[in-house]
Computed example of a mutant assay.
Amino acid sequence: MHSGLGLLPSLAAEKVTVRYGLFERSIPVADIRSYSETQKASSDLKSFLDYLSTEEKQKFQETLQVKMSLDIVALDKLINTGVGKQILSFASTAIARRDQASIQALRSAIIIGAKSPEGLGVVSFLEAYPSNQLVVDVSKISKLVGLANSSSSAADVPPKDNVSSSPLGKIALQYQILAAQDKQFSGCLFGDSVSAELGNTLGSGTFNFGLNGLSTISLQHLRQL
Rank of each mutant, 00 (worst) to 15 (best):
H2M: 08
L147N: 05
T201I: 00
S139V: 08
S165E: 11
R107E: 11
K85Q: 13
T216M: 07
S193F: 01
A154R: 11
A114P: 04
P9K: 06
T81D: 01
P159T: 10
R107P: 03
L11P: 01
K140V: 07
A196G: 07
R25G: 00
L45P: 07
P28L: 08
R33W: 02
Q61E: 13
L7Y: 06
A74E: 03
K40H: 12
D50I: 14
P9L: 04
E14W: 00
V135R: 01
S124R: 00
L173K: 09
N132E: 15
L75Q: 02
S142N: 12
D137R: 14
K183A: 10
Y129A: 04
D161V: 08
N149A: 12
N162F: 00
Y129G: 01
A155N: 08
V123L: 09
Q133T: 13
T17P: 02
I177G: 04
S69M: 12
N149G: 06
I177M: 08
S153Y: 07
L211V: 13
E62G: 03
S102I: 01
Y35M: 12
K85A: 06
A154W: 06
G119I: 08
G199A: 12
L106V: 00
G119S: 14
M68F: 10
F207E: 03
K77Q: 14
Q100P: 03
S10A: 11
T201H: 10
L11R: 13
T63R: 10
G4Q: 12
D71S: 15
R107Q: 13
K40C: 08
S34F: 09
T81Y: 01
